[in-house]
Design a protein around this nucleic acid. Structure first.
Lengths: 260, 260
DNA sequence: ACGCTTTAGTGAACGCCGTTAACAGACACG
DNA sequence: CGTGTCTGTTAACGGCGTTCACTAAAGCGT
């Protein structure tokens, strides 16, 4: 009792565990910095170890390899993105569903803009990581990230804001896919119509597409500021959902009035 | 005159030039195969050289480094994608604009599905390639790829298939961006309304988003076959453009009738 | 306080990579 | 034939991930 034993998980962390966790945090922090500075391919165990004043093999006490390190920090980044979106959501009165949605979606894009390297690692193609690797922690974090939007969308359904598209257009196989999706992500329940899941996915894909294009810089040689396009697409999507759209009152660099 | 001097460009290729070109083609071919097999990070000069029965430094006679090699094959892939789309377009009677559009867009997705690794390298984030490198040939090829769609879209405008959105929603800065985009890609002319360019971009982003999600496998754990979602989005987009939509008569694995 | 076990970290090594420099042979052409 | 260009080699440098054998320290039971 006096001093913590390791015994079961969850009890007070022993000194050893604390310093170990701190070291792991330092590893991830440096890796993150390198990721931001030089892209995912610029993250190397040797460089991290060098910067920490130790040798590369020592890192294997904390991480099973560079792939799993990347998965770890990806999970962290999803948590961070999720927290940013949730914070934006919470900064709006809970009753004002419309503005909560607007704010959350803008927060998503804003975070992506401010963290392009992270976004690319999170949402880009699985460039490193051969199919064998287990991205478990990352997808779990990604699911947590989606939760905010699911909650808001469920509210829209409850309020019957928009009319569902013709259900006959949804084939049997698509229906199965959509049901599986909803179940796995904890979105809706048994009574949620598949058409609603369909609409959610479609909306998400549209906004995701704009942000991807922006961050991956496909239209870079062609369009410097994609905010107007994003706002336009946002307006279309939200209007289609029966959600009130309001244009941002300030340019992209300003902090949008509301503090916090 | 009798025998070709190098002199100017364009004359009959000397023997030396022919074998040189063949070697370069072999390099790109092997690189491409490695890209497909193991992703962009799996392409290495040493491995290519080994497979060709020579040593790595020799490749520097043909390529200025691995980055530029990747740019080269990326350009090739864009040309290939462009050719696939153009071929699909040409397989439909020239008068039937609606079906030409439908077919071309499906050909785009189909190519992406059949060449996921290539697609990731072409449309994914610039993972390798630090900002200094010049992706010139690649973007040029990308522009050629877009030409097919531009032509078809111009036809829609000419036929006034859809009504343009409210132009007042387009801000001055967005207008400038869109104009620059159209000029750089050779889309439309001076009289083409910016709203039209806006619509084109929006449509492209929506379909791009679906295909990206599909190829990058973001919804993989959630949705196996994204064809229904793509078709649904395609239907929405085309209907909004006043284009006749027809559901594909066959499943995704069948070759769709037309040979070639 | 002692000894034992677990843990953190090192050093050497293997094989991979991109890239450069100095050099050797083949070919083309006067 | 001689000369120069082009193609390719060897050697080397530095960086990478990863494994293995090993040391040193920390923790813990007695």
């Amino acid at each position: 009792m006096t001093k913590p034993q390791l015994e079961e998980a969850g009890r007070a962390p022993s000194r050893r565990e604390r310093v170990r966790e701190a070291t792991l945090a330092e590893i991830k922090s440096i890796a993150r910095r390198h990721l931001v500075g030089q892209g995912a391919s610029g993250v190397s165990l040797r460089a991290i170890a060098r910067e920490m004043g130790m040798t590369a093999p020592g890192l294997y006490r904390y991480v099973s390899g560079i792939d799993s390190l990347l998965v770890l920090i990806t999970a962290d980044m999803f948590d961070e993105l999720g927290a940013a979106v949730a914070a934006a959501d919470a900064s709006v009165p809970a009753r004002d569903t419309d503005r909560r949605i607007l704010t959350s979606l803008r927060a998503f894009r804003r975070w992506a803009l401010e963290h392009p390297a992270e976004f690319a690692a999170m949402f880009g193609p699985r460039t490193r990581l051969e199919p064998g690797a287990d991205p478990g922690p990352a997808v779990e974090a990604a699911r947590r990230f989606g939760a905010t939007f699911f909650t808001l969308f469920e509210q829209l359904i409850r309020e019957e804001r928009f009319e569902l598209p013709d259900g006959r257009a949804v084939g049997a196989d698509l229906e199965r896919e959509l049901r599986a999706f909803a179940r796995m992500c904890g979105f809706g329940d048994e009574d949620t119509p598949v058409e609603a899941v369909m609409v959610l996915t479609s909306c998400w894909v549209r906004l995701y597409g704009v942000v991807c294009m922006e961050i991956f810089q496909h239209l870079d040689f062609v369009m410097r500021d994609m905010e107007p396009l994003f706002e336009s697409e946002l307006q279309n999507v939200l209007t289609g959902l029966g959600v009130r759209y309001e244009s941002p009152q300030s340019s992209s660099t300003v902090t949008m009035g509301k503090s916090e």
